[in-house]
Amino acid sequence: MKILDTISEMLQKGKADEVKKLVQQGIDEGINAKIILEDGMMKGMNIIGVKFKNNEVYVPEVLVAARAMNFGIETLKPYMTEHENIAKGKVVLGTVVGDLHNIGKNLVKIMMEGKGLEVIDLGVDVSSEKYIEAIKEHQPQIIGFSALLTTTMINMEKVVATIKEAGLRDKVKIMIGGAPVTEEYCKTIGADIYCSDAASAADAAIDVCAN
């Protein structure tokens, strides 16, 4: 349907008001809300994710696209049934204890939500105990921590150890990322998934939740 392509296109351009209007128009024309979400908005967000990964678009374009998506979702919400609201999976995210940076983590959240995952954001400077509580409370498939600083990256190992000690290691996949983090470091500390960018993190999360 042409209107879905237009929604996708406007979302990629960050045109929030247009997305809102088009979503309402789609509803008024009788298009199913889930189809508008998946074949219009999420399709657009996925394209933005791929372009971001390839350095074809940058953080500002991603953020305005996410803003447009949020506008569209707000319009769509009253028309979604409970069944249609079911997320494709659940992820808990946070910046590791000692680190106050949240840009990378926020981008991962945007990309994951753009793929239909439910994301619980614990914020920055998240202690091991908070991660443990969140795993117990939300029972996510994935728990993710990021760090911008080399000095705080080393706290990831402590979080992994605490999750093991709490007997929760086989309940979640552990995903890590951030500027100083490497695949090698991921293996060293016993985490499961390293991702070098936000779009890859969202792709990897979808793979985990699908299996």
């Binding site: 350095n55 940058y58 953080v59 374009e61 990378g104 500027a179 960018d197």
Partner: peptide
């Protein structure tokens, strides 16, 4: 810049 490149596009 991030590890991946600048935080805004080269044009910006």
């Amino acid at each position: 810049c991030f590890n991946s490149g600048p935080f805004i596009s080269p044009a910006q």
